[in-house]
Amino acid sequence: MNMQELKKNAREKMKGYCRVCRVCDGVVCAGEVPGMGGTGTGASFKANVQALADVKLNLRTFHDAKSPDISCEIFGRKLSMPILAAPITGSEYNMGGAVPEAEFIHMVISGSKQAGTMGMCGDGGNPVFYSSGLSAIEKEGGHGIAVIKPRENHKVIEMVKRAQDIGAVAVGMDVDGAGLVTMALMGQPVGPKNVKELKDIISHTKLPFILKGIMTVDEAKLAVEAGARAIVVSNHGGRILDYTPGVAEVLPAIANTVKGKITIFADGGVRSGVDVLKYLALGADAVLVGRPIIIGAFGGGSEGVRLVLDTMAGELKQAMILTGCSNLEEITDRVIYRN
């Protein structure tokens, strides 16, 4: 199987839900939520892709970075690459249902592990979503991360315990899901959290806790204050609030403030290993990939997910060779071209 075959298969299975466009930039699917698009005009989805495209790189070839090392350690686990599968749910109402939810998330978690990295499972209006994710992680020996919607605290704490009981590597909450349309449609109460509520949740587990959906410096600092081990700089793939900036626009200021105090993931618009390099150079410790993972799963199952991740890893290594980086620590803002 190659990427062309994988995309062809995915296009057929997701007909009417995702066109598997040559450039996945949110233009054609704008407003398709539920679906694969960005909310409203799709401006936030498009901003993620455009903000990354606007980052230019310095080409350097006088160096000894001939065989870059892209391995990293996340929460004590050695990974083959700084690229993880983002938490994704809603196979039926977002992706057409050709692949059942339980099969889909197992493909994501299993394919990620096969690639030497890690996948995340998500939460949604149907309890099957979270349960299927935990089951997939348990089948892979706990090699995965469970992410929960910002439900009422007692419910979140209960779900955190379930993740802990099956041996998940970490647990988190996508606080940017506070106004998610699909949750409202399915009668599931979600909402914003204050620091006291976050501290309460985090105090109930020994697992590393991730807060996903940070887009401002002030909230990054509050995440540190609340005791989170990691944040995900993310606007939820442009699916919750129209007209936010792209992640690449806000990441540098956030990294300048909390880098070293907390692990920083970046999520949004990653389509290649070059995009991964850009996010790392802007201050991320690792990145999350969403829509390409969906294409991989629908187009080729676990093998397709692995192919997507392995392809990005190869592209990252090539980009590091051409920017003079022997390892991830050498990917700094020196690789970014400034006028």
Results as ranks from 00 to 15, higher is better:
184 A>F: 08
198 L>H: 07
198 L>F: 04
149 K>A: 15
197 E>M: 06
215 M>L: 14
180 L>R: 03
172 G>P: 03
184 A>P: 00
152 E>I: 11
205 T>G: 07
170 A>N: 07
179 G>N: 05
145 I>F: 11
151 R>K: 13
178 A>H: 02
206 K>Y: 00
157 I>R: 09
200 D>N: 13
213 G>S: 08
199 K>T: 01
192 P>E: 01
177 G>E: 01
193 K>P: 08
168 A>R: 11
185 L>P: 00
206 K>G: 04
167 G>T: 06
197 E>W: 06
179 G>K: 09
181 V>M: 06
165 D>Y: 10
173 M>A: 00
141 G>D: 12
199 K>F: 04
216 T>K: 15
167 G>N: 12
205 T>P: 13
144 G>E: 14
159 M>K: 13
202 I>K: 03
192 P>W: 01
193 K>G: 00
210 I>V: 14
202 I>W: 09
147 V>T: 14
170 A>C: 04
168 A>Y: 02
195 V>N: 00
149 K>G: 15
159 M>I: 04
155 K>T: 13
161 K>C: 03
160 V>E: 10
160 V>A: 02
147 V>Q: 08
171 V>E: 03
164 Q>R: 10
198 L>Y: 11
171 V>K: 01
176 D>W: 03
199 K>P: 02
160 V>D: 10
209 F>T: 02
196 K>R: 12
189 P>K: 13
160 V>L: 11
175 V>F: 08
180 L>T: 03
163 A>R: 07
201 I>L: 08
145 I>K: 12
177 G>V: 00
184 A>H: 08
168 A>H: 07
210 I>M: 13
193 K>I: 00
169 V>T: 13
216 T>R: 15
200 D>T: 12
171 V>Y: 04
197 E>S: 10
196 K>D: 08
154 H>L: 12
209 F>Y: 09
161 K>W: 11
179 G>R: 02
170 A>R: 00
212 K>M: 06
163 A>D: 09
197 E>C: 04
156 V>L: 06
207 L>E: 04
174 D>C: 07
154 H>N: 14
192 P>Y: 05
183 M>F: 09
214 I>P: 10
171 V>D: 07
192 P>H: 02
191 G>S: 06
149 K>Q: 12
159 M>L: 15
199 K>G: 00
206 K>I: 05
190 V>L: 00
178 A>F: 12
201 I>N: 08
174 D>G: 01
141 G>Q: 09
184 A>K: 15
215 M>Q: 10
192 P>I: 06
172 G>F: 05
170 A>I: 01
162 R>S: 09
185 L>R: 15
140 E>N: 15
208 P>H: 12
160 V>H: 11
160 V>M: 07
204 H>P: 01
173 M>I: 01
202 I>E: 02
212 K>A: 13
187 G>C: 02
190 V>M: 04
175 V>S: 07
184 A>D: 04
167 G>W: 09
208 P>Q: 05
139 K>S: 13
193 K>N: 01
179 G>C: 00
165 D>P: 11
139 K>G: 14
206 K>S: 11
211 L>I: 12
212 K>V: 06
182 T>F: 03
174 D>N: 06
176 D>G: 09
205 T>S: 11
211 L>C: 09
160 V>I: 15
185 L>T: 00
144 G>W: 13
173 M>S: 11
157 I>Y: 05
